[in-house]
Design a protein around this nucleic acid. Structure first.
Lengths: 254, 254
DNA sequence: TCAATAGTAATCATAAATAATCATAATAAA
DNA sequence: TTTATTATGATTATTTATGATTACTATTGA
């Protein structure tokens, strides 16, 4: 049996949202544990299954994420932060959601209420499209050049497209935040985020503890433009949070 | 056995959506491994199969289209038409691809050469993003409101976003074509298609035989604006095709 | 806490598949 | 016919996948 064929069958076994052990797979495909492990590893690396001791499990809810480095998208902290962020959204809201990994997790928890979502993330839009809310989320995508590496739309067309909208809330990912402001690593991303900040009533920054006290290539804006910071608690970031606390309106720790 | 004959048989074997190993093919066609490999390579280069170690797989074998109603997208006719359409694309081209089901199939066959693709189809963009061409397709998405039912971007923002671009080739799906012109069922879709036609050097209509002689809610344009019609042959549509034939520059029947 | 067990990762030799090269056979063009 | 072109199959070196062995690590239960 071909390697690829075997891997397809593994995925098939897991399609029902189940679990497949190394031993079972060895019997099923008549190969050695080493080979099965290698298959499992590859499938896990490409994000198609999740590795557990003794075998692999289906990715279940997040199984439709189309990108490789899925692990990065699914950390417990980021999910908590995302959950807290969506709880701020009320019926009738118009929200900007930018293209970061933290904000992407919001897709899983968005309540099925009437809201309008404006985003430059192809992946977020795809995820929301597949969920097909009953209440009918209205989804608006910005145009522009598609960065296939990160699945987000950037560039002048994306910016001018985004500038057409105004929102109640903007949810942003950052690469760092300190007492002077928020940072990100790409100029094009920063340009988009600035438009979101300027065109929304309130700006919510979603940053896990690893971002606290860190910087980035470009400063997006000062803390005075930030309404809410949602982060998770950790011992190391505690001191830094105190410094930031005074610059912003509200701090949510999850 | 002729080379062409053999390659057709290979494709037949894969029609069911499975894999074919080099060894199996060697026995089946009584040729040498070298020849079979060359066949596999050619078929893979033209995008008709996917190469895996030890053999080839059908394009459908592992490619997971992100939406439910896959069947509709995969009819043999539409695939043939799509294949013929992509063969028109050359290195350096800038192409519009609209959001229909026929045009969507082009994603599977797009050659890995340097081209720029402008589309209002979220699903096409997602599919291309996942394929991650080596040569680096540049993908541009129009902005606008996302119709989750069909996964396409429409509305005034989509239009103005699209109007920024100019292409060599525009590939359009239609709901019908007759001797007077082409038709579609949604005003918003027609608006987008008109922009594509106006902003491209050549317009290619992709319509399977069920569309020939049919109409739709809105007329998009007359046949004089159409450069090429790609369709599949069928007894019923033959007479109608003769009428249409004179209105357009070129007719490709697959 | 400790071993006992089960699962894993790392290494390596082997086997298999592939790409590259070449000579030959089949085909098409002059 | 002769020549040029293309397809084929054999050979080779190279790359890649595999399974056995071993050492390592996590989990379990006393």
């Amino acid at each position: 049996m071909l390697q690829k064929q075997r891997q397809d069958k593994i995925l098939e076994c897991l399609a029902g949202g189940d679990y497949l052990s190394v031993d079972e797979a060895v019997k099923l495909f008549k190969s050695s544990p080493a080979t099965i492990r290698r298959d499992f590893m590859e499938l896990a690396e490409s994000g198609q299954v999740q590795k557990v001791r003794g075998g692999v499990g289906s990715k279940r809810a997040s199984s439709t994420l189309p990108f490789a480095d899925r692990a990065e998208f699914c950390s417990v902290e980021k999910e908590k932060i995302a959950k807290s962020a969506v709880s701020m959204i009320k019926t009738g809201d118009i929200v900007f959601i930018d293209g970061g990994t933290t904000t992407f997790n919001m897709a899983s928890y968005l309540p099925d209420i009437n809201i309008r979502i404006i985003t430059n993330s192809l992946r977020l839009a795809s995820a929301l499209e597949e969920k097909k809310s009953d209440a009918g989320w209205e989804i608006y995508l910005t145009g522009g050049f598609l960065y296939t590496k990160s699945g987000i739309l950037l560039g002048p067309n994306a910016q001018s497209s985004l500038a057409q909208y105004h929102a109640n809330l903007a949810f942003l990912s950052v690469s760092g935040i300190d007492e002077n402001g928020i940072y990100n690593n790409s100029e094009l991303v920063v340009d988009m985020e600035r438009v979101m900040i300027n065109n929304s009533d309130r700006t919510v920054i979603m940053a896990d503890h690893s971002k606290i006290g860190k910087h980035g290539l470009v400063k997006v804006c000062g803390l005075d433009r930030i309404s809410v910071l949602i982060t998770d608690s950790s011992r190391e970031s505690k001191d830094y949070l105190l410094k930031i606390r005074n610059g912003i309106t509200e701090l949510a720790q999850v």
